[in-house]
C-alpha cells in the first residue's frame, strides 16, 4: 500500500511536468498546425542559459526566471527566423525542419557546454515528508504542482478571458477572417510560439533536478512522454494535454515501480500506439466537426 501511494504521488508529480510540456506542444499545434519536435532541445537550451546565470550569480531563482525568458525569446526566434519561412504545403516539411533544429541545438550545446552531465539544482528538498507513517509528497513535489497549477490556470484564463487570448484563438481558427477583423495574425503566431517555448523551458527546469541532470539530450525521453500525453489528450485540446500528462505520468510510474524501470520507454511507446490505434483523435477529441 505504501508503495502504491508513493508510486501514485511520484507519477502525478512527473505527470504534472508532462502535462506542462504536452500543453506547450498543443499550443503550437493549435496555432500553427506544427508538432514542434524541437521543443525538448529548445527547453534544454533555455535550461543551459539558466545554469550559466545561476553558476555566475549563485542564485537559483534568477536562473529560473532567466530560463523562462530565454524560452520565450527562443520560441519567438524559431518562429520568425525558421518556421515562418517553411512551406507548410506538406505537413512533413515543418517536422523535418524541427528535427533539423534538434540536431543543430544539441550540437551547439555540446560544443559550448560539452556533453557531460551537469548537476541540476533543486530549490527545495526532494525527500518526502511523512504523514502518519506514510511517505508522501516532498516539498519539491509541492513546488512542481503549485508552479504548474499556476501556469496552466493562468494560460486557461488568458485564452478564455482576455482580448489577446481571444485574438490568439481567432487567429488560429480562422487566420484570413481574423486579419479582416484587424488581428495581427503573424504576431499572434509568434506569441503562441513564445508562450509554448516558455512553458517548455519551465517544464525542463522542473524536471531536470529529478533526472540525471543537465545534458544536451536530457529532455529526449521527456519529450517522447509528453508527446504521448498530448496524443492521449488529443493534440487540439489543452485540458486533454493536462489530463494526458497525468495519465502518462501514472502509467509510467506504475510500470517502473511494479515491472521495472527498464520497461518504461517501451511502455510509453505501447501507450502511444494503443491510443493511435483505438482513438486517434485522442480521448478529448472535440465532438464538433468544423463547418465552413
Amino acid at each position: 500500500m505504501d508503495r502504491f501511494v508513493f508510486l501514485t504521488v511520484d507519477g502525478l508529480s512527473r505527470g504534472a511536468v508532462y502535462s506542462a510540456f504536452a500543453l506547450a506542444l498543443v499550443l503550437i499545434w493549435r496555432a500553427a498546425r506544427v508538432v514542434n519536435f524541437a521543443q525538448g532541445a529548445m527547453a534544454v537550451a533555455a535550461a543551459y542559459v539558466a545554469y550559466t546565470v545561476s553558476a555566475a550569480t549563485g542564485s537559483y531563482w534568477l536562473g529560473f526566471v532567466v530560463a523562462i525568458v530565454a524560452g520565450l525569446l527562443l520560441g519567438a526566434l524559431v518562429d520568425r527566423v525558421v518556421m515562418r519561412h517553411v512551406d507548410h504545403a506538406s505537413p512533413l516539411n515543418p517536422v523535418i525542419v524541427a528535427l533539423g533544429l534538434v540536431l543543430l541545438i544539441q550540437a551547439v550545446l555540446g560544443m559550448v557546454y560539452g556533453s557531460e552531465f551537469r548537476p541540476a539544482e533543486a530549490p527545495f528538498s526532494r525527500s518526502a515528508l511523512t504523514v502518519g507513517g506514510l511517505a508522501v509528497l516532498s516539498p519539491y513535489d509541492l513546488f512542481v504542482f503549485a508552479t504548474i497549477g499556476v501556469v496552466v490556470s493562468g494560460l486557461a484564463w488568458m485564452f478564455a478571458r482576455t482580448p489577446v487570448g481571444l485574438r490568439m484563438r481567432a487567429a488560429a481558427f480562422a487566420p484570413e477572417v481574423s486579419r479582416l477583423l484587424g488581428v495581427n495574425v503573424g504576431g499572434m503566431l509568434t506569441l503562441g510560439w513564445a508562450l509554448a517555448s516558455g512553458v517548455g523551458a519551465l517544464a525542463a527546469m522542473l524536471v531536470l533536478p529529478t533526472e540525471l541532470g543537465l545534458h544536451p539530450h536530457a529532455m529526449d525521453l521527456v519529450f517522447v512522454s509528453a508527446f504521448t500525453a498530448a496524443v492521449v489528450g488529443g493534440l487540439d485540446s489543452p485540458p486533454g494535454a493536462v489530463v494526458g500528462g497525468l495519465v502518462v505520468g501514472l502509467v509510467l510510474s506504475y510500470v517502473s515501480g511494479y515491472a521495472g524501470s527498464d520497461l518504461t520507454p517501451l511502455a510509453v511507446l505501447v501507450l502511444l500506439l494503443a491510443v493511435l490505434l483505438v482513438r486517434p483523435g485522442g480521448l478529448f477529441a472535440p465532438v464538433t466537426a468544423r463547418r465552413v
Binding site: R169, E176, S178
Partner: peptide, 24 residues
Amino acid sequence: HVPEGRGVISELTVDENLRLGGLW
C-alpha cells in the same frame, strides 16, 4: 469586409465573434 461564406468563426461563441469585430 464580410467575406464569401460570411466568415463566422465556428469555434467561438456569438459574443466572442462580435467582440472580435471591435477589438482593434
